[in-house]
């Protein structure tokens, strides 16, 4: 084994030291505090009715929280730049995945409205006035098993509600 050691084709000056950054405990405590505050914030905001702004606000807060975790708890702020590159690169590819797929779904719907080449299941049901077959109602065999098992229990107690939902469900399943 040679005396000199190399990394990435370059001589390493102090091979027996590991380069590391040790954050002060205070940093971690502040970050934790900020994370709790932000969690409380989203929790509180969820009770306010922000309408269409609710999703962007929630995502913004989540992104800030995530950045704190990544930057401080995961040390990416002080780490090898290449690890940061890996992380951000991943986000870019996730963006590509989301961007194209969601763009297709958006623009596909626009075309649908024009040409009516596709209809969503739900639209179908809306147009025919029949409620969709939900879950177990899609599967006659499983539904029969369920009713055999829970028949007495639910037949009496929730008769009215279950009857309404179930009835419509059967209608949907048969169509």
């Amino acid at each position: 084994m040679s005396d000199k050691v190399f990394l990435n084709g370059k001589v390493v000056e102090h091979p027996h030291e590991i380069h590391h950054h040790v954050s002060p405990v205070r940093h971690y405590q502040v970050v934790l505090g900020a994370l709790f505050v932000l969690t409380g914030l989203t929790y509180a905001v969820s009770f306010a009715s922000l309408g269409p702004a609710s999703l962007p606000v929630a995502m913004l807060v989540a992104t800030i929280k995530a950045s704190l975790v990544v930057g401080y708890f995961m040390h990416l702020k002080y780490d090898d730049r290449y690890n940061l590159f890996v992380f951000l690169g991943t986000l870019i590819f996730i963006g590509i995945f989301f961007g194209f797929t969601l763009f297709d779904l958006e623009s596909r719907d626009a075309l649908n409205d024009d040409q009516r080449t596709f209809t969503r299941v739900e639209e179908d049901f809306n147009n025919t006035g029949v409620k969709p077959a939900v879950g177990i109602s899609n599967d006659p065999q499983r539904l029969a098993e369920f009713e055999a098992k829970h028949g007495g229990e639910h037949g009496a107690g929730h008769g009215a509600e279950a009857g309404a939902g179930g009835e419509a469900g059967h209608g949907g399943a048969e169509h």
């Binding site: 194209f100 297709d104 623009s107 596909r108 080449t117």
Partner: peptide, 22 residues
């Protein structure tokens, strides 16, 4: 290679607009 996948969906019912882009 990550931004061309839609050319497998030209006739699958994806939107024409994104088909052109792909």
């Amino acid at each position: 290679s990550f931004i061309v996948w839609g050319h497998h969906l030209f006739v699958s019912g994806q939107s024409e607009l994104i088909g052109v882009i792909f």
